[in-house]
Design a protein around this nucleic acid. Structure first.
Lengths: 265, 265
DNA sequence: CGGCTCCTTGAGGTTAATCAATCCTGGTGG
DNA sequence: CCACCAGGATTGATTAACCTCAAGGAGCCG
């Protein structure tokens, strides 16, 4: 689903390029309610950028004066640490924006990089702010996107205060919700998933194993199936201290294969 | 510095109340650039709310249709878990807003509660959005506040991926930066600080002790003094893996009481 | 002087990261 | 068709981090 025709189109000069941008903007759910005229003004302050896979878009701390909309491809937002370990904060989806903080801040708070060859629409912050003064509806749209991000980051903070099994449970529930139903497919490597959960591949592997042993899910390659949704939901709330209190039976899976009969709650 | 005159003023009807709100809005750094007319429109959609100390303003998950500006007192934003443990995400400062996510989301992502008797200005989201369409500058201001929050939450996520000593080091550096200089005062209990760092009082106590033993800081009650800023800055980057690599001497403090007369804890 | 709350200290146990193999699995070339 | 290889994925052993429980201090009013 990457960009096979992209290079061709981008080589075309001026007018055509604007059309591409307009199409990109029109297709973004974020800008769904805008009139053609509003889209035109927006397109006038946007630039198209194409990047190969695995390329940084900007790094944490970079002084920035632009934010981006993902038109095609895949991008992730990450935090990187001194010893090269990194945690994925967010996968940017098609039509979503990223780097908005720079609208009113002088540096990016996180790094981003492409996961596939991608096409981005780039908005200069100064021009965009000026545009908002003329088109207040645009401001409301961006505020909406930022509000969503606030909620998402708030969830991420909450997750990191929970133990790994709870984070994994949440992720699996979200994933199966987002795709059809109990059976769902992981679109990234398990190492990437570990990073997304703020842990390491080894721990992820063991935790998945415990889930399988507890009959909460099945795993086949990168396909998961939720077997015991209530138990996962319980685990997702689980902050580790209730371990000693009780309710551990739904979860405790000693090395024996005793087949926790309680699953099937 | 709480509200001794508040009750009196609030008992006054109509006109006076509006004046109070206008003063509150005028004093908020966020609204510094607005004209009197703009402030007036803003005040027209605001309500004043007074709350005693220790009272929830709203809880995580509450359906909400208003966000708030802190005019007087103190408020904190927290995440609470099943077993009653809670972590403080943010201390709201005078003149700052909180709960903005609800502008475009149907529920609050975190809980908030007053830490002192407080006076809040309350903005209905529907009316506020309508107002933004008429006064785009207002939208830019709120976007700015939201952008700051995005940066702050991003930092919070980053912190939680770091070990406790790094989080404490960051907090102390920020605190001493924010107040005059190396010597700084903690405005909350140490238990609260533990919650702010996403840990428990015992761990905080031990970590502080290690800092003191390592001559990084001194502690007297709730007064801290930074002695070795570079070492703290190094620790703040510290993601736990560099532990084995080197530079541990600045930090390693065995159980022996080998010459730390400064432990006048 | 209790009683109170907060902070500290100690002992013990659980979680999860690290280190170090080993095992798949899909792709490649003989 | 199969040996081989590289990358990711698993597993085991070890260790560090830090949370829990439980028992003292230390300051602060009534």
């Amino acid at each position: 689903m990457a960009g096979e025709a992209v290079g061709e189109i981008r080589r075309a000069p001026g007018a055509i390029l604007v059309v591409v941008i307009l199409d990109d903007l029109r297709q973004a759910p974020l800008f769904a309610g805008l009139t053609d005229e509003q889209l035109g003004r927006l397109g006038a302050v946007a630039q198209t950028v194409s990047l190969p896979a695995g390329e940084p878009v900007f790094a944490q701390g970079d002084p920035g004066n632009a934010f981006y909309l993902l038109a095609e491809g895949a991008v992730k937002v990450v935090k990187t640490f001194s010893n090269e370990r990194s945690a994925t904060i967010r996968y940017v989806r098609l039509g979503e924006t990223f780097g908005e903080s720079v609208l009113f801040s002088d540096a990016y708070p996180s790094s981003t990089e492409t996961m596939e060859p991608s096409r981005l629409c780039c908005f200069d912050t100064g021009e965009f702010r000026r545009l908002v003064l003329a088109e207040p509806a645009l401001g409301l749209l961006i505020m909406g996107a930022m509000a969503q991000l606030l909620v998402m980051l708030s969830q991420r903070v909450e997750e990191l205060l929970l133990p790994v099994p709870a984070r994994l449970a949440r992720f699996l529930l979200d994933l199966s919700e987002e795709q059809g139903e109990p059976r769902c497919h992981l679109m990234v490597t398990k190492g990437e998933l570990a990073s997304r959960l703020g842990t390491v591949p080894e721990t992820l592997s063991r935790t998945l194993h415990r889930f399988v042993a507890g009959r909460l899910i099945t795993v086949q390659g990168s396909t998961f199936e939720v077997l015991n949704r209530p138990a996962l939901e319980h685990l997702a709330q689980y902050d580790g201290a209730s371990l000693h209190s009780r309710t551990s039976d739904t979860w405790a899976v000693p090395r024996s294969r005793d087949a926790s009969p309680s699953s099937r709650v």
